[in-house]
Design a protein around this nucleic acid. Structure first.
Lengths: 172, 172
DNA sequence: ACCGTCTAGCTAACAGTGTTAGCCAAGCGA
DNA sequence: TCGCTTGGCTAACACTGTTAGCTAGACGGT
């Protein structure tokens, strides 16, 4: 339908299949059978495409966390989604949030599952987010030594809590 | 002395003063009064420069953490250094570790302060790193809402621990 | 049926990126 | 003095995002 959405679709496929450096204006145009400058008839520039991808990634992440009933399963879901969609996770998380371009409610929707698990405690939810994000980010960057038992790290981190009154639980 | 080190020096200054997108081969050459291709007489390519910067950043971070006696002051030192040197922190942490190019001991030196604070517990140290890194990374990316009380988040996170038997402590 | 306008494509071009090839002057050891 | 190595140089290539300007076709109004 919308050519703009078509462009973002292609960008998302390209990002997941070939990595961020493959998401190039000319490559996008190729994939659509047009020339690169024609993209600018539908999109202001590459940053706008990236912002659209970021919004999608946040929505996907939020959807993946929605079903988790408690802290351990939320942690597992968070990590699992990030590992399955590393490029999307990166773009969701590394890019400074373009809050103006972002459709309203997207940020809140992504935050909701964390807040639910901390019983509405905002500070605890932010700490939990930091913890989960940090572990995932370091794992994705290959920063833990090759043999590191990350399941144990997650279990330890979530078991020792961050959220008040949550129980311990193995993750993988 | 070594022209190679001179190049990395300039790269570091440029990175901190003008941001990563300013660290360009031609800009580096300009700063040294030579032409860009001449850089390749001393350096294999840009990735090598980035690896050298990453190594430096790790050493600087390790030095900043060295003096911290306990968990709360370590957390404060970690956050303070990252906020004061956001570009260096990024390059230390975002780049996949080029372990071969890295001088031996650098990684261990950066990890040591965390391990000390967790009483040698490797799993706890990794969880702690994940927590600190996640909080810092999200803060640097501007991902917490404008009014968020991050001091409280740090206090909560570190107070509720991750390391066994550490006490609570305000951070800012 | 014609006229005008808007849409969505096109080519050519620009400034910038990392990088390679090939030339050349200066220094230095045998 | 010869020859080699060092560290510069210019020119060029393939790539990046982006702009200007042209044009074919569709659509609506008179």
């Amino acid at each position: 339908m919308n050519r703009r959405e078509e462009i973002v679709d292609v960008a998302e496929r390209l990002l997941e299949r070939a990595g961020p450096e493959a998401v190039t204006m000319r490559r996008l145009a190729d994939e659509l059978g047009i020339q690169a400058p024609s993209l600018y008839k539908h999109v202001a520039g590459k940053p706008e495409i990236e912002a659209a991808l970021q919004e999608r990634a946040l929505q996907r992440l939020a959807a993946a966390l929605e079903a988790a009933p408690d802290l351990p399963s939320l942690a597992a879901a968070y990590r699992a989604w990030a590992l399955r969609h590393p490029r999307l996770y990166e773009i969701a998380t590394r890019l400074p949030l373009a809050r103006e371009r972002l459709a309203p409610g997207v940020e809140a929707a992504a935050a909701a599952p964390l807040l639910r698990v901390t019983g509405g405690d905002l500070t605890a939810a932010r700490a939990l987010w930091g913890l989960a994000h940090g572990l995932v980010d370091l794992e994705l960057a290959g920063r833990f030594p090759p043999g590191a038992d990350l399941d144990a790290v997650w279990a330890h981190a979530m078991g020792k809590r961050v959220a008040p009154g949550a129980g311990a639980g193995a993750t993988g």
